[in-house]
Amino acid sequence: MPSMKLATMTSAFALSIFSLMATQASADATLDRIKGRGALTVGVILSGAPFGYIDPKTQEQKGFNIDIAKALAEDLGVKLETVTVTPPNRVQFLQQGKVDLLIANMQYTEDRAKVLDYVPTAYDRAGGAAVVRKDSGLKDWADLKGKPVCVSQGSNYTQPLIEEYGAVVKALPSQPESLLALQGGNCVAAVHVGATVGLLLEDRPEDWKDYAIPFPTELIPSDSVIWLRKGEKDTQTALDNSVKKLHASGKLLEFAKSNRLLNTKFLEEQQKALSASK
């Protein structure tokens, strides 16, 4: 079939042009660009309160992540631009340079640290919580073996759920779809960042009266960090200082409280540690 060969050749050709254009995009050091443009572009995720959501009245973005982004931009003396990202596209957006950094519910994992750099001082600590039906009889993570579990596409809980607990992971485009799939009975549990689902169950007791978060531990609790492209040391240092300042001044704790984060123990400890060291 000559047309097939032709098809092969052209698609390879077309894609090689794409990739050539893509490599052209890597710009100069991020910090210079931020200062040069006078704006910090942050990728934020709108997975719901308390981290990020749209306010219907003003149609503005609100939440813990947004507050941190605002404070960082203020500290750098530039204005803030936010870009909404989703779990499946956030790493691509950062790699492409569409955003300067990600404050997008991404915890530290070794695999991520291989492809991206991060700000060493964490702004929060979070782990995965599983929402399950009260009558399901599931007691702990090990009970998920062989059962369908919903997550978001690109979630860092996918690998431990599959490899450690042998769950059958179903990844949906974002958190609301995953939770709806749980209510529809397409999975026995939905695993997401603990604070979001915890607050959801608390705020919407009517919709969620048959559901609970029964597992005693969180899945891979780890530091929520700001992610950067590989090798951007200046930006990393500048942001690390900013985050430390936010901890020390108690601002992060304040953001957490005003956005109703359920567990602020980590932030309290950090504030004590960092304000003492000053």
């Binding site: 894609l15 990739s19 254009m21 995009a25 710009a27 596209n89 492409q96 340079g97």
Partner: peptide, 11 residues
Amino acid sequence: ATTYIFPFEIV
């Protein structure tokens, strides 16, 4: 393909 392969800005 176009979203993830094209750059976010062109010079």
